[in-house]
Design a binder for these strands. Structure first.
Length: 510
RNA sequence: GCGGGAGUAGCUCAUCUCCGGUAGAGCGACAGCCUUCCAAGCUGUAGGUGGCGGGUUCGAGUCCCGUCUCCCGCUCCA
């Protein structure tokens, strides 16, 4: 990370804490690594983001409905989804090179080397015997080849058994016995083999035995897939249709850092769109464009976004696109659009033994729908808004201000109301105005300190509009409304505050 | 997880270094005064068992060990 963006990132994190957006979890007890809490302003911003996403998906699309599934799910869900197998890796570090490897990979590479030796022997023999060479016979009888083959077999047996038993000590022993060296450092100075589990587990019920182990979901999508039939049938949904969900997910990341970008407990906003097989690429394109449009509607300039097409695909996908955002630490994934094929629904059909299909009246056939997923990290979106919004501004008079240029319709507090001075009945008038506005907008009243200071305080949390009650207000019932970014003021009648704020909030939504 | 750096008031920091002797400032917050519009007027108040635990010592923020957390690099990442 470049020095100045590193500084900027630090300032944003400090600002987020100082102004009640994000606190480290359990800070009182020295904090909990990679877990964060949202403070009084953070929760408002986060709720506003959620609300906007939810409306964009569920309210603005008649064929998309919502869902709120539980975090606990039947353990077989994760067997079916592939998470149980795909994210259970035994890892080992070389103390000299500081490199980390998958222990089973190292052993497999060793076996491949042995296989390479066999191939070499075969090649040599073929050269020697020419036309008469009988490969099968050679493989079965050549002393050296047979020895290599036996070695491979015995290693493989030990490896498979060790993995099955989750015997980490045996894996380490195997690496020691084979005298495997680190390709980088060339040494055999290894740590113990340790198990890394992506998923958190816990016990359901008060008796602790292995049979009631359950996992905290590592993605919300599976809650949608296992409810596909329920929603499709009870909602009488016709393909194509979507199910949207906002919820917490949990991942025990090996390294979880970078503030709220990568957390152990995080929130996803996902929409799974069920389509007829063969049309998935069209819908993939469609949602790619829709999601880009949605991001543009936040009013953040295009250059903050970059599209990235995946070449290494996850176990469930046949196409994947990331929308990346220019965070202070560089372009990083904000949202993923994936064509998940029928991988998940088929897997659940197989593991549950139930028919997870759709009868298409048009084609008069049943099929397992294909799925196009849009999956965005709520916390990452929050961070993108926060890091875009943070600005240290030099004003014409030479002074500085820190202003959070949060898209106004997402701002934690929409309207702040101040009496110019704390006397002459101005505070009472200001209270009166707030009481009229608070049912429509999140408002804030302040009378402490000089007026300029109060403006700056609200700049720092991104409040788009400040209403000031002055002496003229008492004569003609007008107030000034000050706009955050331009710092310009208009004088408007009290009765017009609500419609004008409404109008401006709408305008600001791309 | 490994390696390096750091942790003193809400924030920024001072004191720390070869020399151990009962923690200060600015900003901020709060209360009040003064002020007719963009942070810096006046008065007062609160706030720290120096991340936590242990050791050495008559005495530790200061020396030693452990631990937690954060930052940087490496590794991993649906």
């Amino acid at each position: 990370m470049a020095k100045n963006s590193e500084d900027r990132f630090k300032k944003i994190i400090a600002h987020a804490k100082e102004y009640g957006f994000v606190f480290q979890s359990s800070e009182l007890y020295d904090g909990l690594s990679a877990v964060y809490d949202y403070g009084q302003n953070g929760v408002e911003l986060k709720n506003n983001i959620k609300d906007y996403w939810w409306k964009s998906m569920v309210q603005y699309h008649e064929n998309i409905v919502g869902l709120d599934s539980a975090i606990f799910m039947h353990p077989r869900t994760w067997k079916a989804s592939g998470h149980l197998d795909a994210f259970n890796d035994p890892m080992i570090d070389n103390k000299d090179s500081k490199k980390r490897y998958r222990a089973d990979d190292l052993i497999e590479e060793h076996m491949e080397k042995l296989q390479g030796k066999i191939d070499k022997e075969v090649k040599k023999a073929r050269k020697r015997f020419g036309e008469d060479f009988d490969e099968e016979k050679f493989l079965a009888t050549n002393e050296r080849v047979v020895k290599y083959k036996e070695q491979i077999e015995s290693i493989n047996n030990r490896l498979v058994k060790a993995l099955e038993d989750e015997n980490l000590g045996e894996l380490k022993q195997l690496i020691d016995d084979l005298e495997i060296v680190d390709p980088v450092s060339g040494t055999k100075n290894w740590t113990d083999v340790r198990q890394f589990n992506l998923m958190f587990d816990t016990r359901l019920g008060s008796l602790s035995d292995d049979s009631n182990k359950v996992y905290l979901r590592p993605e919300t999508a599976q809650g949608i897939f296992v409810n596909y039939l329920n929603v499709q049938k009870t909602g009488r949904m016709k393909i194509p249709f979507g199910i949207a969900q906002i919820g917490k997910a949990f991942r025990n990341e090996i390294v979880a850092r970078q503030f709220i970008f990568r957390m152990r407990e995080f929130e996803q906003m996902e929409m799974q769109y069920f389509v007829r097989p063969g049309t998935e690429m069209d819908w993939f394109e469609y949602w790619k464009n829709e999601r880009v449009k949605w991001h543009r509607s936040l009013g953040i300039p295009d250059e903050y976004y970059k599209l990235y097409e995946h070449e290494n695909l996850a176990h469930y996908a046949n196409a994947a696109y990331d929308i990346e955002f220019a965070y202070p630490m560089g372009f990083k994934e904000l949202e993923g659009i994936h064509s998940r094929t029928d991988f998940d629904l088929s897997a659940h059909q197989e593991y549950s033994g139930r028919k997870v299909q759709y009868y298409d009246p048009e084609t008069q056939e049943s099929y397992v729908p294909y799925v196009v997923e849009t999956s965005i990290g709520l916390d990452r979106l929050f961070l993108s808004v926060l890091s875009y919004a943070y600005e240290e501004e030099k004003l014409d008079d030479g002074s500085e201000r820190i202003v959070m240029k949060i898209p106004p319709f997402l701002a934690p507090i929409k309207v702040a109301v101040f009496p110019l001075v704390r006397k002459d009945g101005l505070p009472e008038k200001a209270r009166e105005i707030i009481n009229g506005l608070k049912y429509d907008y999140n408002c804030h009243y302040e009378e402490k300190d000089a007026i300029g200071k109060r403006y700056r305080r609200h700049d720092a949390i991104g409040t788009p509009y400040c209403i000031t009650v002055d002496h003229q207000t008492l004569d003609d019932n007008t107030v000034t409304i000050r706009e955050r970014d331009s710092m310009k003021q208009d004088r408007i009648p009290i009765d017009n505050i609500s419609p004008i704020v409404w109008e401006r909030l709408r305008e600001n939504r791309g």
